Simulated scan of single mutants.
Amino acid sequence: MPETQSETNIALPAMRVSYEQGSLAEIDLAGSWHEQLGLWLDEATRAGLAEPNAMVLATADPQGRPSSRTVLAKGLDARGLVFFTNYTSNKSHDLKATRYASATFPWLAMQRQATVRGTVEKVDAAETAEYWRTRPRGSQLGSWASPQSRVVRDRSVLDSALANINRQFADAERVPVPPHWGGWRIRPEMVEFWQGRQDRMHDRLRYHLVGDNWQVERLAP
């Protein structure tokens, strides 16, 4: 029989943290959602957080079944938030079907998080190529070798695929962008900034796109 919670060594109900590191008031916010997100990304970086640009990306398939995974943000400006991936992956199939996504930056050590939600679009080939040139060669080769999200027999299939790609591009000074690889941009309709507070009375401030204008709203925790 499966273990019950009382039989484990993990006391989940007793796990709690008192959030006391900061606060977030309307006057603290930058003039735009992307400037505010940039500020918090900078602060997370200066604080020494591991992979401060890591975000949990949530998508749904045409039947509404959700999936989530961690990806790395690689672009931020007034147009939206960009990440790169394999266009044949499960996440890309979801995005092609629904054209909608949500992404959350979980800066747990700073007792804060930011969530971006909106429609998605592919970035253009020039922007993809510009980012591709900054990637380590090993990461470039891995993007060619991996049939992302597909079932493979065992690890040896992946190792063999990478070895074949290494041979294919052994004499190439530059590895080209795979035709199945590129960027997605989330164009936000909502961006929420969450700062933990004592007694679970957290600060939640949201930039909300209404028509062509952004409004700032406070949400109850």
Rank of each mutant, 00 (worst) to 15 (best):
Y207L: 09
A30E: 13
F105I: 07
S149F: 02
M55W: 13
L57K: 04
A125M: 06
R167P: 02
W181E: 14
T119Y: 04
Q140D: 09
L219W: 06
F169E: 01
T115S: 14
Q111Y: 00
M190H: 12
R197E: 14
D77S: 09
V175E: 13
T119W: 11
E127V: 12
M110G: 12
W214F: 11
Y19T: 00
A220H: 08
D199W: 08
H93E: 08
W184V: 07
N9L: 06
I10K: 00
W132I: 06
L41P: 00
Q168P: 01
A103N: 04
S89E: 13
S143R: 00
I10H: 00
A161H: 10
H34E: 15
A170V: 13
E192L: 01
Y207K: 07
L37W: 04
S139I: 11
R46Q: 13
S102F: 11
R167E: 13
W107G: 05
D212F: 12
T59H: 07
I186Y: 03
P13H: 00
E3D: 04
F84S: 05
L49S: 13
L209I: 02
N213V: 04
E3W: 08
R65K: 10
S89I: 08
V175H: 05
P178M: 15
V123W: 00
V191N: 13
D94N: 10
N86C: 05
M15H: 11
P106N: 04
A54M: 10
Q198I: 01
G211W: 08
T8N: 01
L72T: 05
P221N: 09
A58E: 03
R79F: 07
M201K: 11
A97H: 06
N53T: 12
G196H: 00
L95H: 09
T4W: 08
A25E: 04
Y100C: 04
L37H: 08
N166Q: 15
E127H: 10
N9K: 13
Q21H: 05
V120C: 14
S92K: 13
R137G: 07
T45R: 15
M55I: 09
Q195F: 11
S146P: 03
E20G: 03
R150Q: 15
S139Y: 07
V71H: 11
A58R: 07
D61F: 03
R137V: 07
Q195N: 07
G48F: 05
Q198A: 11
K74Q: 14
W107Y: 06
Q21A: 12
F83N: 02
S160Y: 02
R206S: 12
E189Y: 00
W194N: 08
S67M: 01
V175K: 13
A129P: 03
N164M: 09
R137F: 05
V123F: 00
L39E: 06
I165K: 13
Q168S: 08
E192P: 00
W40D: 03
R117S: 15
S89K: 02
G48E: 10
A114T: 07
G182K: 01
R150D: 14
Q36Y: 05
S67L: 06
D159A: 07
P178Q: 15
R167Y: 01
A73V: 12
V177C: 02
L162T: 01
D203F: 12
D154R: 04
V123L: 04
M1L: 13
G38R: 11
T115R: 15
T45H: 15
L76K: 11
I27M: 07
Q36N: 11
